[in-house]
Structure formats: C-alpha cells, structure tokens
Simulated scan of single mutants.
Amino acid sequence: MSIVDEIQKDIFDYLDSHYGIERDEINSHSALNELGIDSLGLLAIADIVRKKYDIVLDDERIASVRTFQDFTDLLERKVAARESAIPAARATDPEAAAERDHVGTREGRELNRAES
C-alpha cells in the first residue's frame, strides 16, 4: 500500500466517523461540497495528514480542492516532491538528510514547508 493509499484510507475513516459518508459513496469525481465537506472539514483532513504523515498541505492549495480527485492529486504531488527531495539531500549532506527523515523533527518540517 502506497503512502497516498494510506492517507486516503485515513480520510475515508475521518469522513465516515465525522460526516457519516461511507467509502462507497465517494468516487474520484465526488465534489467535496456536495458531500457536505466545507473548508473546516478540509482543514481538519489537512491536519490529520500533517500530524500523522508530516506532510504539510498549505491553506492556499487546500482552498483550490473541489473534488476527491483534486485532493488525491495534491497529495500525490506533495509525496512525490518529498520523495524526490530526500535523495537529493542525502547526496549533498547525508547527516542532515538522516535527521530530516525523522518524522516530526524541525528539519523535516522545514523541508516539507520548502516543498510547498
């Protein structure tokens, strides 16, 4: 299971527990506002992603999300940017890269913000 798949599972769990939306009610073209998910709901999902996966989804990009596919695309871009930045950092500074690999470290959060 990819990290995006894991994040999507967490999002489905959140939507089920907080909005009563079951997985089979959602497809890639589902409009989030039609599912009853407002901007606060999107921010709550972004907070889950940040806390559990140390992936920061900035407010400006979250505001442009309209469908579940938009959210998935945003996640895929963020994960790809993070994964491509780590090998480059290791090549130039292996010790710093090792520190950034630790979820929740100051360096890891700074790297994640730089990717935004």
Score class of each variant (00 low, 15 high):
A114N: 08
N33M: 02
V65K: 13
Q8Y: 07
D38H: 12
R61C: 12
L111F: 04
D38R: 08
A98N: 02
D10H: 08
E76D: 15
I7G: 02
T105V: 09
R61K: 15
G41K: 01
I11G: 05
T67P: 00
E95T: 13
R82S: 02
Q69I: 01
D58P: 09
L40C: 05
D93F: 03
A63M: 14
A81D: 06
L43I: 07
D13K: 03
L32I: 01
M1V: 15
Q69Y: 11
A81T: 15
R61A: 12
I21V: 00
D54N: 15
V49D: 06
G108I: 12
L57Y: 13
S30R: 02
A89D: 11
G41E: 05
D38L: 01
N27Y: 08
N27L: 07
A88E: 01
I86E: 08
R90K: 15
A91L: 14
Q8M: 11
D38G: 12
N33Y: 06
R50F: 11
Y14D: 00
H29Y: 03
I86N: 01
H102C: 12
L32S: 00
R109T: 09
E25D: 09
G36E: 09
D13Q: 03
E107M: 02
T92G: 08
E115L: 08
D70S: 00
A63G: 11
D16F: 05
D5C: 10
A80E: 13
N33E: 05
I26A: 00
A91Y: 11
E115S: 09
A81I: 06
D73R: 02
F68E: 11
R23H: 11
V65W: 03
E95V: 05
S84D: 13
Y19R: 06
S116K: 04
A97I: 00
T72N: 15
E110W: 10
L111E: 05
D24R: 04
D24P: 00
Q8E: 15
D16E: 02
A85P: 04
A63P: 09
N27K: 03
K9G: 08
I7A: 02
N27P: 10
D101Y: 06
K78D: 15
G104K: 04
V56D: 07
I45G: 02
V65F: 14
Q69H: 14
E99W: 04
F71Q: 05
E99G: 06
D24I: 00
A31M: 01
E107N: 09
Y19T: 05
A91F: 13
F71T: 06
I11C: 00
F68V: 01
A97V: 01
D47M: 05
D59N: 14
S84I: 09
R50Y: 13
L32W: 00
H29T: 04
P94I: 11
P94Y: 06
T67G: 04
A63C: 12
K51I: 09
K52A: 14
V79T: 07
T92W: 14
L111A: 00
T67Q: 14
G108V: 07
L111R: 03
I11N: 03
E95W: 04
H102A: 02
D13F: 10
R61D: 14
A88N: 10
R77V: 10
D47L: 10
G36N: 09
I11Y: 03
L32A: 01
L40Y: 06
